[in-house]
Simulated scan of single mutants.
Amino acid sequence: MQAEEAIDAVTSAAIGAGVPAHDATVIRIGENGVVLLPAACVLARVVPRAAKGSDPRREIEVAALLASRQVPVVHPARPEPIIVGQYVVSLWEYLPDSRPADVVVLAECLRRLHRIPAPRDLLPYLSPFDGFEERLKTGASLDMSDRLFLRHLRDELSARWNTAEFALGEAVLHGDAHMENLLVTADGREAFVDLEAVCIGPPEWDLTLTALYYECGWFSAKEYIDFAHTYGFDVRLSPSWSILRLIRMLRMTLWLAQSADIDPQRQRQLRHRIDTLRDGTAPAGWTGY
C-alpha cells in the first residue's frame, strides 16, 4: 500500500461519512495504513479488501464487546467500516494527548482483559503462524538460505506448539500486547488499540512480549518484576516459555524483514536477528524499531 492510496481511500470514506478530511496525514504505512484526520479527531485504518487476517467489522464488534465488559478500549467513530474500491476503511476516535502505558498499567489491564468470558462465536482461536508465508515472500532482504531456515524453524515450532502445555488456561487475548498498544490519556483514561489480533488462547501469549523485551534489554529488571508481580504470573516460569519466546522472535524477525530493504540499519539488525536465531544466542543484541 502506498501513502497516496491510503490518503485517497480515507478521504473518500470520510467525505461519505460527513467527516472533515482536508488535513489527512499518513501516520503509518505497511500491510495496512493508518491516517490521521486532525480536524475531526479521527484515526482511520485502511486495510486491503483481500488482506487475510484483517477484518475491520470484527474489530469494531470487538471494541463494543470489550467496552461492555469494562475493558479499556478505543471506540469506533463510526459503527460500520466503509468500502472504497479495493480497500476497507474504519474510523476510530483519536486520543491526541495520549502516551504509551507503563508496564504496570499494561499488566493491570491485561489481567482485566483475561478475566472476561470468551465469546467463541465472535473470536477466532490463536494461530501463531498465520500470515507466515505472506510475510516471508515480501521480505525482500531475505535470501534463499534465510527463507529455508525460517521455514524450518516455523515447522519445528509448529510441531512443538501443537503439544505445548499452558498454566493459565484460555482467555480473551489482545494478541499484540505491548505498551504502545495500550494508551493512557492526560486525564488518566486507558485504552487498548490495534484490535485486529484479538482472539482466544493462552494468556501466556499476551505476557510473552514484555518478558522478551526484558530479555532484549529494553526494560530494567525492576520494570519486569513489577509487571510480573502486578499480573500475578511470570511467564518465564511457564512450561511453554521456550516455545513462546522463539515464536515471538520468529514473528519479530519477519516483521522487520518487511521494511529492512529501505534502511541499512534495519538490514544489519535483520541479519543479526537471523544469525542469532541460527546460533541460539537470540535475542542478544536485538534492537527495537
Rank of each mutant, 00 (worst) to 15 (best):
Q265V: 06
Q86E: 11
A140W: 15
L254F: 13
V47D: 03
A63T: 08
A159K: 11
L237C: 01
Q265I: 03
P81V: 06
R160G: 06
T276C: 07
L168V: 07
A6C: 04
T11A: 05
L142W: 11
Q269W: 11
A107P: 15
D226K: 02
L207V: 07
G288D: 10
F129C: 06
P283K: 04
G175A: 04
S90G: 06
E80W: 15
L65V: 06
E134G: 03
E4I: 14
Q267V: 00
L113F: 10
A24I: 00
A101I: 13
E108Y: 07
I243M: 04
L277N: 13
F166I: 00
Q86V: 02
G232L: 02
A64R: 10
R57E: 15
D176F: 09
A284Y: 02
K137E: 10
A171G: 03
A177C: 09
L207I: 09
A159S: 14
R268F: 08
Y213G: 00
L270R: 15
F166E: 05
I262W: 11
A260Y: 13
V84D: 14
V10W: 12
Y231I: 10
D121N: 03
H229W: 06
S90L: 05
G53I: 09
H152R: 02
R245Q: 08
A21M: 01
L153C: 06
V103G: 12
V193N: 01
R112E: 12
S242C: 11
S127Y: 05
A40I: 00
W286I: 02
D226P: 13
V193C: 03
R273L: 02
A118M: 07
E5W: 06
I7F: 11
L142F: 12
A14W: 09
L182W: 09
Y289P: 08
G217Y: 10
Q258I: 11
V89F: 13
F219Y: 14
V26I: 10
R266H: 11
P117S: 00
E133Q: 12
I225F: 05
E156S: 10
R99I: 09
L113W: 12
D194E: 06
V103M: 13
L106C: 07
A39G: 09
L43G: 01
L113I: 04
D279E: 01
Y214D: 00
R147T: 12
Y87P: 09
L153F: 09
R120M: 04
W205A: 05
Y224D: 08
A21R: 03
H178E: 01
L37C: 03
G217I: 09
D143N: 15
F192E: 03
Q2G: 12
V34N: 09
L168M: 15
H152Y: 13
I274V: 10
G30P: 08
E133Y: 04
P283M: 03
V104A: 10
F132R: 01
G30A: 05
F149N: 02
D155N: 12
H174V: 06
I262Y: 08
L66P: 07
A51T: 02
P48D: 02
L207Y: 12
A77I: 01
N162E: 15
A191F: 10
A67V: 13
S259C: 14
T210C: 03
A44G: 06
E5F: 09
G30S: 07
I7V: 15
A44Y: 06
I82V: 03
L209E: 02
W92Y: 09
L246W: 13
A221I: 00
S259L: 02
W241G: 01
S12A: 08
D130Q: 00
A39I: 01
V35I: 02
A140T: 12
P202S: 14
Y213H: 04
A228K: 13
